[in-house]
Design a protein around this nucleic acid. Sequence first.
DNA 1: GCGCGGGAAGACAGGTCTGTCTGGCTTTGT
DNA 2: ACAAAGCCAGACAGACCTGTCTTCCCGCGC
Lengths: 201, 201
Amino acid sequence: MPTKATASKPSVRERLLAAADELFYSEGVQTVGIDRIVQKAGVAKASLYNLFGSKEELVQAYLDARHDRTREQIERVLTRFRTPRERLLGVFDGQGQLFTEPGFNGCAHMTASAEVRPGSPVEGAADRYRLWVRTLFTDLAREAGVADPEELARQLHLLYDGAGISARMDRDPSAATTARAAAAALFDAAVKNKEPGDAGQ
Amino acid sequence: MPTKATASKPSVRERLLAAADELFYSEGVQTVGIDRIVQKAGVAKASLYNLFGSKEELVQAYLDARHDRTREQIERVLTRFRTPRERLLGVFDGQGQLFTEPGFNGCAHMTASAEVRPGSPVEGAADRYRLWVRTLFTDLAREAGVADPEELARQLHLLYDGAGISARMDRDPSAATTARAAAAALFDAAVKNKEPGDAGQ
DNA sequence: GCGCGGGAAGACAGGTCTGTCTGGCTTTGT
DNA sequence: ACAAAGCCAGACAGACCTGTCTTCCCGCGC
């Protein structure tokens, strides 16, 4: 039973992922070396290579874990809303909550993808994340009955990415509020131009 | 006269900046070492350190040069437009031209800022670039007479950043077109809500 | 009691990086 | 013509990286 998770002490894999998340996210995957991760996790270096095989695969596992946590966070926020318009804009509410978390440092997939060389398998994790965001927006736009859900989803994805960039580089968590307001304007324009009799609210 | 620029052979500084631009931009500032830059530039390593002092200052000079070229490109495109609405949307036309240039690899300031450790002076170059974009959008929005130029500029900046991200990570230059369409909708909504008698066109 | 496997600790190899320094060549000013 | 400065080429030091391998120890099932 290699991955046992007792309450007293998490498994080796969990300790490694926790240490990798903390160090990779705050300082970058390139500047943080393997030695610091195994030291922080209290784990032997051989265990890391037995479990993950290489640093690059550890980075992928770290990004996939971030992806899962982000998805759970967004989906949890969306359960609070009922109307399609509220649910669509609720994505930016969930994003705003992520921005205010302690230690927030931007989108992990963007920074990691910028650090590895082009063609690295790490980009696959970023592609998976982007596909999930795009699909989420497309589904929400389709549920709301807009004429061109793909086009609106592309526009909202731009706002979503831009807000992540601004929150990190301008150190301004209110970027999510700005994005939400812009998304509301885009959505209202999309439904008004196509179905003048059907109110979005 | 240390920086002479004859037609036959550019100065040492210009050769260094050209090599740094090509290598840093395509492969990242972290993975490209000093040795490859001096080899590509045909320059002694001592000349690099005499001219710039450190790799970090070379990175800053590379980013500032990119900043200047981007500004010139955008401003040149904007001279073709007359009305405030056209000039505001023209920023995304200029951005779209940058996306289709050979070797395009996203916003250099974003990737470089993601590669250096937090607090590095390299982030200053990114801040200067972001301030220019923000000011440009704010001025254009003010000239167009919208009620809240700062708010519209924040929203357009999100679209601008998001388009740069999408063009790089989705390898889709048409992100500029999507951003332009969204910007038009946001602009039209802003002028229509505040001054119903004044047409944006 | 005892074997045995997982894991901690760390040495080690091989490579790469930044930054400094030396030596010799070329170009330029006078 | 000659001195002086700029510059190319490359060795070198010191640090750091990934990945492998060895050694030892602890805890568990039987």
